[in-house]
């Protein structure tokens, strides 16, 4: 259940991140306002960017691990990887 949530969350983060960084939302912040001396649009773009990174970092440890695969790919195939986790 928790994994499913993390998977859904990564979808949401990616989709919302994309929407936030594209018109028509983006130009909304393109106005002559400054935050601590920095134009709003710059703060916004880099802020969303950083938020995406933090979200990806937080979610990366919650997403299910892939089943341990053969140590080296040129080892002969073993049957144990049959039927491993679906996506």
């Amino acid at each position: 259940m928790r994994r499913q949530k993390a998977r859904d969350a990564i979808v949401a983060v990616t989709v919302f991140g994309t929407l936030l960084l594209l018109p028509p939302i983006l130009p909304f912040f393109d106005r002559s306002v400054t935050v601590g001396g920095v134009p709003l649009i710059v703060v916004y773009v880099f802020g969303v960017w950083l938020a995406l990174i933090v979200a990806a970092w937080a979610l990366s440890r919650r997403l299910p691990m892939d089943a341990p695969r053969r140590a080296r790919l040129d080892d002969p195939p073993t049957d144990q990887i049959r039927g491993e986790g679906a996506d």
């Binding site: 990564i10 983060v13 990616t14 994309t18 773009v45 960017w49 995406l52 997403l63």
Partner: peptide, 20 residues
């Protein structure tokens, strides 16, 4: 201006959604 950021934002989105 800010247009340069697009060159990095695309990859950022792809990597944030690496799972897919």
């Amino acid at each position: 201006g800010l247009e340069f950021a697009t060159i990095y934002l695309g990859p950022t989105l792809v990597f944030v959604g690496w799972w897919f």
